[in-house]
Design a protein around this nucleic acid. Sequence first.
RNA 1: GCGGCCUUCGUCUAUCGGUUAGGACGACAGCCUUUCACGUUGUAAAGACGGGUUCGAUUCCCGUAGGCCGCGCCA
Length: 470
Amino acid sequence: MSAPGQIVTRFAPSPTGFLHIGGARTALFNWLFARHTGGAFRLRIEDTDRQRSTPEAIEAILEGMAWLGLDHDGEVIYQFARAERHRAVAEELMRKGAAYHCYASQEELSEMRDRQKAESKPLRYDGRWRDRELAGPKPNAPPVVRLKAPQTGETIIDDKVQGEVRFRNDVLDDFVLLRADGTPTYMLSVVVDDYDMGVTHIIRGDDHLTNAARQRQIIDAMGWPQPTYAHLPLLHGPDGAKLSKRHGAQGIHEYRDLGYLPEGMRNYLLRLGWSHGDDEIIPTDRAIEWFNLESIGRSPARIDFKKLDSINGHYIRAADDDALTQEAIVVMQRLGRPALTADQQAQLRAIMPSLKERAKTVIEIIDGASFISDSRPLALDDKAQKLLSADARRRLGRLGAALGGLTWTAGDIEAAVRAFAEAEGAKLGDVAQPLRAALTGKAVSPPVFDVMATLGREEALARLRDQAAA
RNA sequence: GCGGCCUUCGUCUAUCGGUUAGGACGACAGCCUUUCACGUUGUAAAGACGGGUUCGAUUCCCGUAGGCCGCGCCA
């Protein structure tokens, strides 16, 4: 799986929902670091919370990763399946005298916390069962296993992003390793799995920074090597508050439905917290070449959809026409839009070059292509209505006649329309805008001559006649 | 409450003691143009506050304020 000396990173989501945008960025950074170093990027599903974990969530996470193009190495590890191993480590810790049984009840513990809060003391387990002899008779209930954490000195995390972070051991406590029902807690499972998977670099959100200290204590107790940590600042919504439903898209799947491309998402997510001088457009191969832990920023970043649009637009314009056509069709399906006929799909493909030039998202492509599937007689929006004055309609009537027997290509149509405008003593725009309105029902569209060529002679002329006056 | 982290234009960021504090998105104003978009030119826009250290601080240190994270037999 992983060669000696090889760098191993991992992404370890818990399957309690879809792949969150913040999680996606974490996954991206892990993936980039592994690809940059020629190491392995592993995926572990932290499904030890049996109540909240669902197969649907696992599926959503896998799908999200696949869409983003973040391929993982090796098999997916399911944490719950490894509970036996985690338990064995807890028992080993017991044997080493580095962990102990604690019989304190939930009520007892919450009373303890209330008291500590009232006394302005740190909220921590007070170690009442740390020395069993002093603890008195054991209650008749099954105990939890707690780590016998150091009580003096400090636990230091040398973080690649945050620098050296020190925690006084007297503010950390003897946290639970094994629950009363014998199942391992997250804190234990993570450490054991990371060790067993050979993870060398732990890149994750900085909400785990204090956990890192606790995890280090387990690692030290086991005598295992410390991984390298890099705790990423969290992502916030556009208003600076924690990302929530009212900010719109949280799940990565929503971004696909919003018309963003994986390349665009990767580029944008990368720039949220990582920089390379003044570079903004950083294709994935470049990102792999350049990525490092040193250039990760330390402050939290907000999601800015305008910037995302801008970057995505860059990748839309650069995208392959066939691929974009396919993606547009897929997104239309996902959105429940009526399916395009084979002819319409061909038309979509035909006009894609001018469509993608003016779109920032696949949604804008779809909207721009709506003239293809609109059926006669076209509904006119307000601006189109305004363009089609009585004069303009009469002019369209004359134009229709002038377009009689010509080869139906955008170039020839344009030449004919220009000649017509000149003959009318009108500016091109005075002819083209009403024409656009007649053909698309809107004042904004891809270039009219492309639209006409795409529509075909018969349909284009018919739409023109619909709006023309004698 | 206790602990930790963070703080440069509205937003994302560059700067690794000496710069007219740079770029990008967005905004605004032009140009280009059959509309829109692209492209292009220009304008406005920032070092939270207070102390130090230093010949010199956005940069190093301390404090204050604000924001965020953690403090579960959740992960």
